[in-house]
């Protein structure tokens, strides 16, 4: 399909890279054009008409013109700047993590409107959440599902038997939870507690409104994060870079406020 010379789309700004004197190359995520890179001219100047509408993690309505190699953003209007998110360091970190996952898991110009919707929802959920860790886990599970990596949590992918309520084994390579007899034979499979498995099923099977009512204790949240992290790393074949920053903030928080967190879900 030939694209029109000028087109409109809404987009969320995932990433930016300086270009030349005052320009930027932005990585945008859009509902019907997928991920795309576009040039925003002059956005680093204080008087730029576009600048404030194209900061990272801004949801904007854009007008783009087809360029020779990259398309050029000609107009921008903010739809939502997620201000509460920007004013909280921990939530900013969480949102950047979500944006990095989208950036790394998607290819340019592959549309996935449901995934776009999920990212937009996740940014709104993070503003209201009481536990950002839980919100991120929900985001991860549904992101994987929309990309075709939904982990199999009901029956063992090797022997097809229904999983029993006991300690099973999570295997990224087999895309799900193995029963104890298959799991012990797979070197890369890690034990997964029954509670973690239950939480994963609950997050996978419910809408966010219901799933977000869960309350996880520290140990469970940690195991869930490690399990999901391993699965994501396996498919990306890469570290997710913003994880280091989130861990850094958690360490700092634990030192500064040993009796409780100031931000939702900062401590585990």
């Amino acid at each position: 399909m030939t694209r029109p010379r000028v087109y409109k789309t809404e987009a969320i700004v995932l990433k930016g890279m300086d270009l030349g004197e005052a320009d930027k190359i932005l990585t945008l995520y859009t509902p019907y054009l997928g991920k795309l890179s576009a040039v925003a001219r002059g956005v680093r100047r204080p008087k730029s008409k576009l600048g404030g509408h194209l900061d990272l993690l801004t949801h904007s309505q854009l007008l783009l013109a087809q360029g020779k190699s990259l398309d050029v953003i000609t107009q921008a209007q903010t739809l939502d700047s997620f201000l509460p998110l920007r004013q909280n360091l921990w939530l900013t970190g969480c949102a950047l993590y979500a944006a990095e996952l989208i950036d790394r898991f998607t290819a340019e110009r592959v549309e996935n409107p449901a995934l776009y919707r999920l990212l937009l929802n996740a940014l709104n959920w993070l503003i209201q959440t009481l536990d950002a860790n839980l919100t991120l886990r929900y985001f991860e599970l549904h992101l994987l599902e929309l990309l075709g990596y939904r982990p199999q949590l009901q029956q063992c992918p090797l022997c097809q038997t229904q999983l029993k309520p006991t300690t099973n084994f999570f295997s990224p390579a087999h895309g799900g939870v193995l029963c104890p007899s298959c799991g012990t034979l797979e070197a890369e499979a890690r034990p997964i507690s029954l509670n973690t498995l239950k939480v994963m099923r609950y997050l996978q099977g419910n809408d966010y409104g219901i799933a977000s009512k869960l309350r996880l204790d520290g140990g469970l949240a940690k195991e869930l994060e490690t399990t999901m992290g391993g699965y994501i790393r396996f498919h990306l074949e890469h570290e997710v870079k913003s994880v280091a920053f989130l861990n850094d903030l958690r360490r700092q928080e634990a030192k500064a406020h040993p009796f409780g967190p100031l931000s939702p879900g900062l401590r585990q």
């Binding site: 008087k47 600048g51 404030g52 903010t78 700047s81 920007r86």
Partner: peptide, 16 residues
């Protein structure tokens, strides 16, 4: 707001 700027083009975060 930047000196010499224009309210019409200012984004919500800056205006806030």
């Amino acid at each position: 707001l930047p000196v010499g700027g224009d309210l019409e083009y200012t984004d919500e975060v800056t205006l806030t």
